[in-house]
Design a protein around this nucleic acid. Structure first.
Lengths: 210, 210
DNA sequence: GTCTATATTTCGATAGAC
DNA sequence: GTCTATCGAAATATAGAC
Protein backbone atom coordinates (compact mmCIF):
# COMPACT_ATOMS: atom_id res chain seq x y z
CA UNK A 1 0.00 0.00 0.00
CA UNK A 2 1.33 3.37 -0.94
CA UNK A 3 -1.25 5.22 1.12
CA UNK A 4 -0.04 6.63 4.45
CA UNK A 5 -1.40 4.97 7.55
CA UNK A 6 -2.93 8.14 9.00
CA UNK A 7 -3.73 10.70 6.33
CA UNK A 8 -5.22 13.29 8.67
CA UNK A 9 -2.11 13.35 10.82
CA UNK A 10 0.09 13.74 7.76
CA UNK A 11 -2.13 16.54 6.52
CA UNK A 12 -1.86 18.25 9.87
CA UNK A 13 1.92 18.16 9.68
CA UNK A 14 1.77 19.53 6.18
CA UNK A 15 -0.56 22.38 7.14
CA UNK A 16 1.57 23.29 10.13
CA UNK A 17 4.84 23.32 8.21
CA UNK A 18 3.36 25.19 5.28
CA UNK A 19 2.12 27.90 7.62
CA UNK A 20 5.53 28.09 9.29
CA UNK A 21 7.30 28.41 5.95
CA UNK A 22 4.79 30.95 4.60
CA UNK A 23 5.23 33.13 7.66
CA UNK A 24 9.01 33.11 7.32
CA UNK A 25 8.79 33.64 3.57
CA UNK A 26 6.56 36.70 3.93
CA UNK A 27 9.09 38.31 6.23
CA UNK A 28 12.09 37.52 4.02
CA UNK A 29 10.35 38.53 0.78
CA UNK A 30 9.30 41.81 2.42
CA UNK A 31 12.77 42.59 3.71
CA UNK A 32 14.80 41.53 0.68
CA UNK A 33 12.40 41.47 -2.26
CA UNK A 34 11.83 38.42 -4.45
CA UNK A 35 15.25 38.61 -6.06
CA UNK A 36 17.08 39.31 -2.85
CA UNK A 37 15.34 36.59 -0.88
CA UNK A 38 17.01 33.18 -0.78
CA UNK A 39 15.55 29.84 0.08
CA UNK A 40 18.36 29.45 2.61
CA UNK A 41 17.33 32.63 4.44
CA UNK A 42 13.71 31.53 4.53
CA UNK A 43 14.71 28.07 5.72
CA UNK A 44 16.89 29.49 8.50
CA UNK A 45 14.09 31.79 9.63
CA UNK A 46 11.64 28.90 9.65
CA UNK A 47 14.15 26.68 11.44
CA UNK A 48 14.07 24.00 8.75
CA UNK A 49 16.59 22.56 6.32
CA UNK A 50 16.45 24.14 2.91
CA UNK A 51 15.44 20.88 1.27
CA UNK A 52 12.24 20.80 3.32
CA UNK A 53 11.08 24.03 1.68
CA UNK A 54 11.32 22.37 -1.71
CA UNK A 55 9.41 19.41 -0.35
CA UNK A 56 6.42 21.63 0.49
CA UNK A 57 6.82 24.20 -2.28
CA UNK A 58 8.25 23.02 -5.58
CA UNK A 59 9.92 26.28 -6.52
CA UNK A 60 10.77 29.65 -5.01
CA UNK A 61 8.19 31.21 -7.31
CA UNK A 62 5.47 28.86 -6.06
CA UNK A 63 6.25 29.86 -2.50
CA UNK A 64 6.18 33.54 -3.44
CA UNK A 65 2.88 33.14 -5.24
CA UNK A 66 1.28 31.65 -2.16
CA UNK A 67 2.52 34.56 -0.05
CA UNK A 68 1.07 37.10 -2.45
CA UNK A 69 -2.25 35.26 -2.67
CA UNK A 70 -2.52 35.17 1.13
CA UNK A 71 -2.08 38.94 1.24
CA UNK A 72 -4.62 39.52 -1.47
CA UNK A 73 -7.25 37.60 0.51
CA UNK A 74 -6.63 39.74 3.58
CA UNK A 75 -7.06 42.88 1.49
CA UNK A 76 -10.30 41.66 -0.02
CA UNK A 77 -11.73 40.77 3.36
CA UNK A 78 -10.90 44.23 4.68
CA UNK A 79 -13.05 45.69 1.93
CA UNK A 80 -16.20 44.07 3.27
CA UNK A 81 -16.83 46.88 5.73
CA UNK A 82 -17.03 49.23 2.78
CA UNK A 83 -20.23 47.64 1.59
CA UNK A 84 -22.55 47.29 4.57
CA UNK A 85 -22.26 50.93 5.59
CA UNK A 86 -25.23 53.32 5.32
CA UNK A 87 -23.22 56.20 3.88
CA UNK A 88 -19.81 57.58 2.91
CA UNK A 89 -18.78 58.61 6.41
CA UNK A 90 -19.30 55.17 7.88
CA UNK A 91 -17.97 53.31 4.82
CA UNK A 92 -14.79 55.29 4.33
CA UNK A 93 -14.21 55.59 8.06
CA UNK A 94 -14.47 51.86 8.58
CA UNK A 95 -12.39 51.14 5.49
CA UNK A 96 -9.59 53.43 6.63
CA UNK A 97 -9.65 51.88 10.09
CA UNK A 98 -9.50 48.37 8.64
CA UNK A 99 -6.70 49.16 6.23
CA UNK A 100 -4.67 51.02 8.84
CA UNK A 101 -5.02 48.03 11.13
CA UNK A 102 -3.71 45.77 8.37
CA UNK A 103 -0.78 48.14 7.84
CA UNK A 104 -0.01 47.81 11.53
CA UNK A 105 -0.54 44.07 11.89
CA UNK A 106 0.63 42.84 8.48
CA UNK A 107 3.28 45.32 7.35
CA UNK A 108 5.28 42.61 5.62
CA UNK A 109 2.31 41.50 3.58
CA UNK A 110 1.69 45.05 2.43
CA UNK A 111 5.34 45.39 1.42
CA UNK A 112 5.30 42.19 -0.59
CA UNK A 113 2.19 43.40 -2.36
CA UNK A 114 3.72 46.81 -3.08
CA UNK A 115 6.87 45.21 -4.41
CA UNK A 116 4.85 42.86 -6.62
CA UNK A 117 2.87 45.74 -8.13
CA UNK A 118 5.95 47.96 -8.51
CA UNK A 119 7.64 45.26 -10.55
CA UNK A 120 4.72 45.01 -12.94
CA UNK A 121 2.63 42.40 -11.10
CA UNK A 122 4.30 39.40 -12.80
CA UNK A 123 2.43 36.98 -10.54
CA UNK A 124 -0.94 38.59 -9.77
CA UNK A 125 -1.65 40.47 -12.98
CA UNK A 126 -4.72 38.31 -13.58
CA UNK A 127 -6.10 39.27 -10.16
CA UNK A 128 -5.64 42.94 -10.98
CA UNK A 129 -7.53 42.53 -14.24
CA UNK A 130 -10.43 40.56 -12.76
CA UNK A 131 -11.06 40.66 -9.03
CA UNK A 132 -9.53 44.04 -8.28
CA UNK A 133 -10.98 45.70 -11.36
CA UNK A 134 -14.46 44.44 -10.51
CA UNK A 135 -14.14 45.49 -6.89
CA UNK A 136 -12.94 48.94 -7.88
CA UNK A 137 -15.73 49.44 -10.38
CA UNK A 138 -18.33 48.45 -7.82
CA UNK A 139 -16.98 50.78 -5.16
CA UNK A 140 -16.64 53.64 -7.64
CA UNK A 141 -20.30 53.19 -8.54
CA UNK A 142 -21.18 53.26 -4.85
CA UNK A 143 -19.27 56.52 -4.42
CA UNK A 144 -20.98 57.97 -7.49
CA UNK A 145 -24.35 57.17 -5.96
CA UNK A 146 -23.44 59.08 -2.81
CA UNK A 147 -22.37 61.99 -4.97
CA UNK A 148 -25.63 61.90 -6.91
CA UNK A 149 -27.53 61.85 -3.63
CA UNK A 150 -25.67 64.95 -2.47
CA UNK A 151 -24.02 63.18 0.44
CA UNK A 152 -20.49 64.20 -0.59
CA UNK A 153 -18.70 66.42 -3.11
CA UNK A 154 -18.44 65.44 -6.78
CA UNK A 155 -14.92 64.03 -6.56
CA UNK A 156 -13.47 61.53 -9.00
CA UNK A 157 -14.24 58.14 -7.40
CA UNK A 158 -11.16 56.41 -8.83
CA UNK A 159 -8.75 59.02 -7.53
CA UNK A 160 -10.47 58.95 -4.15
CA UNK A 161 -9.92 55.19 -3.96
CA UNK A 162 -6.25 55.66 -4.91
CA UNK A 163 -5.92 58.19 -2.08
CA UNK A 164 -7.47 55.73 0.35
CA UNK A 165 -5.05 52.99 -0.69
CA UNK A 166 -2.04 55.28 -0.78
CA UNK A 167 -2.53 56.92 2.61
CA UNK A 168 -3.29 53.72 4.51
CA UNK A 169 -0.67 51.48 2.93
CA UNK A 170 1.99 54.17 3.34
CA UNK A 171 2.12 53.40 7.06
CA UNK A 172 3.20 49.85 6.28
CA UNK A 173 5.28 50.28 3.13
CA UNK A 174 7.15 53.34 4.43
CA UNK A 175 6.99 52.27 8.05
CA UNK A 176 10.76 52.31 8.32
CA UNK A 177 10.91 55.93 7.18
CA UNK A 178 8.12 56.92 9.56
CA UNK A 179 9.87 55.11 12.40
CA UNK A 180 13.13 56.91 11.62
CA UNK A 181 11.38 60.28 11.61
CA UNK A 182 9.75 59.28 14.89
CA UNK A 183 13.15 59.16 16.55
CA UNK A 184 13.77 55.53 15.71
CA UNK A 185 10.79 54.22 17.67
CA UNK A 186 7.69 52.51 16.27
CA UNK A 187 4.47 54.47 16.51
CA UNK A 188 2.82 54.12 19.89
CA UNK A 189 -0.83 53.21 20.36
CA UNK A 190 -1.65 56.90 20.70
CA UNK A 191 0.31 57.74 17.55
CA UNK A 192 -1.49 55.05 15.57
CA UNK A 193 -4.78 56.46 16.80
CA UNK A 194 -3.66 59.95 15.75
CA UNK A 195 -2.65 58.58 12.34
CA UNK A 196 -6.05 56.97 11.82
CA UNK A 197 -7.87 60.09 12.97
CA UNK A 198 -5.76 62.36 10.77
CA UNK A 199 -6.37 60.31 7.66
CA UNK A 200 -10.09 59.91 8.29
CA UNK A 201 -10.63 63.53 9.29
CA UNK A 202 -8.76 65.05 6.34
CA UNK A 203 -10.25 62.71 3.75
CA UNK A 204 -13.84 62.89 5.01
CA UNK A 205 -13.76 66.65 5.29
CA UNK A 206 -11.90 66.88 1.99
CA UNK A 207 -14.72 65.15 0.12
CA UNK A 208 -17.38 67.19 1.87
CA UNK A 209 -18.90 64.23 3.71
CA UNK A 210 -18.70 65.83 7.14
CA UNK B 1 53.98 60.18 -18.37
CA UNK B 2 51.02 58.41 -16.88
CA UNK B 3 48.69 61.37 -17.32
CA UNK B 4 46.28 61.17 -20.23
CA UNK B 5 46.96 63.51 -23.11
CA UNK B 6 43.59 65.25 -22.93
CA UNK B 7 42.03 64.99 -19.46
CA UNK B 8 38.92 66.97 -20.28
CA UNK B 9 38.07 64.69 -23.18
CA UNK B 10 38.54 61.64 -21.00
CA UNK B 11 36.37 63.20 -18.32
CA UNK B 12 33.69 63.92 -20.88
CA UNK B 13 33.67 60.28 -21.93
CA UNK B 14 33.43 59.23 -18.31
CA UNK B 15 30.57 61.60 -17.57
CA UNK B 16 28.68 60.49 -20.65
CA UNK B 17 29.09 56.78 -19.97
CA UNK B 18 28.27 57.15 -16.29
CA UNK B 19 25.04 58.95 -17.18
CA UNK B 20 24.18 56.24 -19.71
CA UNK B 21 24.79 53.49 -17.17
CA UNK B 22 22.92 55.30 -14.39
CA UNK B 23 19.88 55.74 -16.62
CA UNK B 24 19.83 52.06 -17.52
CA UNK B 25 20.47 51.05 -13.92
CA UNK B 26 17.55 53.12 -12.60
CA UNK B 27 15.19 51.35 -14.97
CA UNK B 28 16.47 47.86 -14.18
CA UNK B 29 16.57 48.43 -10.42
CA UNK B 30 13.01 49.77 -10.55
CA UNK B 31 11.70 46.86 -12.57
CA UNK B 32 13.53 44.03 -10.83
CA UNK B 33 14.62 45.37 -7.45
CA UNK B 34 18.20 45.38 -6.22
CA UNK B 35 18.37 41.62 -5.82
CA UNK B 36 16.59 40.87 -9.07
CA UNK B 37 18.67 43.27 -11.11
CA UNK B 38 21.79 41.90 -12.76
CA UNK B 39 24.81 43.75 -14.09
CA UNK B 40 24.27 41.90 -17.36
CA UNK B 41 20.73 43.29 -17.72
CA UNK B 42 21.94 46.81 -16.99
CA UNK B 43 24.82 46.41 -19.42
CA UNK B 44 22.52 45.16 -22.17
CA UNK B 45 20.11 48.05 -21.60
CA UNK B 46 23.00 50.53 -21.73
CA UNK B 47 24.43 48.82 -24.82
CA UNK B 48 27.79 48.18 -23.19
CA UNK B 49 29.78 45.10 -22.24
CA UNK B 50 29.30 44.06 -18.66
CA UNK B 51 32.97 44.69 -17.84
CA UNK B 52 32.59 48.36 -18.67
CA UNK B 53 30.08 48.78 -15.85
CA UNK B 54 32.69 47.57 -13.41
CA UNK B 55 35.19 49.95 -14.92
CA UNK B 56 32.96 52.92 -14.04
CA UNK B 57 31.33 51.52 -10.90
CA UNK B 58 33.39 49.18 -8.76
CA UNK B 59 30.48 47.12 -7.48
CA UNK B 60 26.78 46.63 -8.07
CA UNK B 61 26.13 48.26 -4.71
CA UNK B 62 28.13 51.37 -5.67
CA UNK B 63 26.05 51.71 -8.81
CA UNK B 64 22.84 51.29 -6.84
CA UNK B 65 23.96 53.86 -4.27
CA UNK B 66 24.52 56.42 -6.99
CA UNK B 67 21.04 55.77 -8.42
CA UNK B 68 19.42 56.27 -5.02
CA UNK B 69 21.40 59.44 -4.34
CA UNK B 70 20.35 60.90 -7.68
CA UNK B 71 16.71 60.33 -6.80
CA UNK B 72 17.11 61.86 -3.38
CA UNK B 73 18.45 65.07 -4.92
CA UNK B 74 15.44 65.33 -7.23
CA UNK B 75 13.13 64.93 -4.25
CA UNK B 76 14.89 67.60 -2.26
CA UNK B 77 14.77 70.05 -5.13
CA UNK B 78 11.04 69.48 -5.51
CA UNK B 79 10.60 70.59 -1.92
CA UNK B 80 11.90 74.09 -2.63
CA UNK B 81 8.50 75.32 -3.79
CA UNK B 82 7.20 74.46 -0.36
CA UNK B 83 9.24 77.22 1.23
CA UNK B 84 8.76 80.35 -0.84
CA UNK B 85 4.97 80.22 -0.73
CA UNK B 86 2.95 82.84 1.19
CA UNK B 87 0.57 80.33 2.74
CA UNK B 88 -0.63 76.73 2.99
CA UNK B 89 -2.76 76.80 -0.15
CA UNK B 90 0.10 77.92 -2.38
CA UNK B 91 2.74 75.81 -0.63
CA UNK B 92 0.84 72.53 -0.57
CA UNK B 93 -0.64 73.14 -4.01
CA UNK B 94 2.77 73.72 -5.54
CA UNK B 95 4.30 70.82 -3.63
CA UNK B 96 1.62 68.41 -4.81
CA UNK B 97 2.02 69.63 -8.38
CA UNK B 98 5.80 69.19 -8.23
CA UNK B 99 5.65 65.74 -6.67
CA UNK B 100 2.97 64.55 -9.08
CA UNK B 101 5.12 65.75 -11.97
CA UNK B 102 8.05 63.75 -10.59
CA UNK B 103 5.81 60.70 -10.30
CA UNK B 104 4.95 61.12 -13.95
CA UNK B 105 8.43 61.93 -15.27
CA UNK B 106 10.58 59.83 -12.95
CA UNK B 107 8.44 56.83 -11.99
CA UNK B 108 11.46 54.54 -11.90
CA UNK B 109 13.30 56.78 -9.48
CA UNK B 110 10.31 56.82 -7.17
CA UNK B 111 10.10 53.03 -7.29
CA UNK B 112 13.78 52.59 -6.46
CA UNK B 113 13.34 54.93 -3.53
CA UNK B 114 10.25 53.10 -2.31
CA UNK B 115 12.03 49.77 -2.60
CA UNK B 116 15.03 51.10 -0.72
CA UNK B 117 12.87 52.37 2.15
CA UNK B 118 10.73 49.23 2.22
CA UNK B 119 13.83 47.10 2.69
CA UNK B 120 14.93 49.14 5.67
CA UNK B 121 16.99 51.81 3.87
CA UNK B 122 20.27 49.84 3.97
CA UNK B 123 21.95 52.43 1.75
CA UNK B 124 20.39 55.79 2.62
CA UNK B 125 19.63 55.38 6.31
CA UNK B 126 22.03 58.23 7.13
CA UNK B 127 20.11 60.54 4.78
CA UNK B 128 16.86 59.67 6.52
CA UNK B 129 18.34 60.48 9.91
CA UNK B 130 19.90 63.77 8.87
CA UNK B 131 18.70 65.55 5.75
CA UNK B 132 15.17 64.16 5.64
CA UNK B 133 14.62 64.49 9.37
CA UNK B 134 15.76 68.12 9.30
CA UNK B 135 13.62 68.90 6.28
CA UNK B 136 10.57 67.28 7.85
CA UNK B 137 11.02 69.12 11.14
CA UNK B 138 11.31 72.43 9.31
CA UNK B 139 8.20 71.86 7.24
CA UNK B 140 6.23 70.61 10.24
CA UNK B 141 7.13 73.86 12.07
CA UNK B 142 5.95 75.82 9.05
CA UNK B 143 2.63 73.99 9.08
CA UNK B 144 2.28 74.55 12.80
CA UNK B 145 2.75 78.29 12.24
CA UNK B 146 -0.08 78.31 9.73
CA UNK B 147 -2.24 76.48 12.24
CA UNK B 148 -1.37 78.97 14.97
CA UNK B 149 -2.24 81.79 12.59
CA UNK B 150 -5.63 80.23 11.94
CA UNK B 151 -4.96 79.67 8.26
CA UNK B 152 -5.79 75.97 8.43
CA UNK B 153 -7.20 73.34 10.80
CA UNK B 154 -5.15 72.01 13.69
CA UNK B 155 -4.07 68.80 11.98
CA UNK B 156 -1.00 66.80 12.94
CA UNK B 157 1.79 68.20 10.70
CA UNK B 158 3.70 64.92 10.48
CA UNK B 159 0.69 62.91 9.37
CA UNK B 160 -0.21 65.60 6.85
CA UNK B 161 3.27 65.33 5.34
CA UNK B 162 2.91 61.53 5.20
CA UNK B 163 -0.37 61.96 3.34
CA UNK B 164 1.30 64.31 0.86
CA UNK B 165 4.09 61.84 0.20
CA UNK B 166 1.78 58.84 0.06
CA UNK B 167 -0.81 60.27 -2.32
CA UNK B 168 1.69 61.74 -4.78
CA UNK B 169 4.17 58.88 -4.88
CA UNK B 170 1.36 56.36 -5.24
CA UNK B 171 0.91 57.42 -8.86
CA UNK B 172 4.49 56.34 -9.59
CA UNK B 173 4.95 53.36 -7.29
CA UNK B 174 1.54 51.83 -8.08
CA UNK B 175 1.42 53.15 -11.63
CA UNK B 176 1.10 49.66 -13.02
CA UNK B 177 -1.99 48.99 -10.92
CA UNK B 178 -3.52 52.33 -11.89
CA UNK B 179 -2.78 51.64 -15.53
CA UNK B 180 -4.41 48.21 -15.28
CA UNK B 181 -7.52 49.70 -13.67
CA UNK B 182 -7.51 52.32 -16.42
CA UNK B 183 -8.10 49.61 -19.00
CA UNK B 184 -4.41 48.95 -19.59
CA UNK B 185 -3.64 52.46 -20.84
CA UNK B 186 -1.41 55.04 -19.16
CA UNK B 187 -3.18 58.08 -17.76
CA UNK B 188 -3.80 60.72 -20.38
CA UNK B 189 -2.90 64.37 -19.95
CA UNK B 190 -6.45 65.06 -18.85
CA UNK B 191 -6.38 62.19 -16.40
CA UNK B 192 -3.12 63.40 -14.87
CA UNK B 193 -4.68 66.83 -14.50
CA UNK B 194 -7.71 65.27 -12.83
CA UNK B 195 -5.41 63.33 -10.51
CA UNK B 196 -3.54 66.47 -9.49
CA UNK B 197 -6.77 68.40 -8.98
CA UNK B 198 -8.34 65.60 -6.96
CA UNK B 199 -5.39 65.30 -4.62
CA UNK B 200 -5.01 69.06 -4.15
CA UNK B 201 -8.73 69.70 -3.74
CA UNK B 202 -9.35 66.93 -1.21
CA UNK B 203 -6.26 67.65 0.85
CA UNK B 204 -6.62 71.44 0.90
CA UNK B 205 -10.30 71.26 1.78
CA UNK B 206 -9.56 68.46 4.23
CA UNK B 207 -7.20 70.63 6.27
CA UNK B 208 -9.54 73.61 6.14
CA UNK B 209 -7.23 75.76 4.05
CA UNK B 210 -9.83 76.57 1.40
C1' DG C 1 39.11 53.18 -22.43
C1' DT C 2 37.13 48.64 -24.43
C1' DC C 3 36.02 43.91 -24.44
C1' DT C 4 36.63 38.57 -24.24
C1' DA C 5 37.39 35.01 -21.32
C1' DT C 6 37.33 33.32 -16.92
C1' DA C 7 37.78 32.92 -11.84
C1' DT C 8 34.93 32.52 -7.75
C1' DT C 9 30.88 32.48 -5.27
C1' DT C 10 26.21 31.64 -4.47
C1' DC C 11 21.71 30.12 -5.43
C1' DG C 12 17.85 27.02 -6.80
C1' DA C 13 16.92 22.51 -7.03
C1' DT C 14 17.61 17.43 -6.46
C1' DA C 15 19.42 12.80 -5.20
C1' DG C 16 19.29 9.48 -1.99
C1' DA C 17 20.18 7.71 2.79
C1' DC C 18 17.51 7.52 7.00
C1' DG D 1 8.50 13.24 6.28
C1' DT D 2 13.55 14.74 7.28
C1' DC D 3 18.10 16.00 6.16
C1' DT D 4 23.08 15.86 4.17
C1' DA D 5 25.56 16.29 0.23
C1' DT D 6 25.87 17.93 -4.17
C1' DC D 7 24.82 19.19 -9.04
C1' DG D 8 24.28 22.69 -12.54
C1' DA D 9 23.16 27.34 -13.55
C1' DA D 10 23.82 32.05 -12.98
C1' DA D 11 25.70 35.91 -10.71
C1' DT D 12 29.53 39.30 -9.37
C1' DA D 13 33.86 40.54 -10.28
C1' DT D 14 38.48 40.41 -12.44
C1' DA D 15 42.45 39.36 -15.54
C1' DG D 16 44.66 40.62 -19.40
C1' DA D 17 44.84 41.29 -24.53
C1' DC D 18 43.81 45.08 -27.57
Amino acid sequence: MDEPARPQKRNAIRAQNEALILQAAEKVFAEAGFGGATMQLIADMAGLPKANLHYYFATKEDLYRRVVQNIFEIWLHAADCFDNAPGPVEAIGAYVDAKMEISRRHPNGSKVWASEVMHGAPVIQDYLETTLRDWTAGRAALIQNWIDEGRMDAVNPDHLLYMLWATTQHYADFGHQIETLNGGAPLSDAQWLAAKDSVKRILLKGIGAV
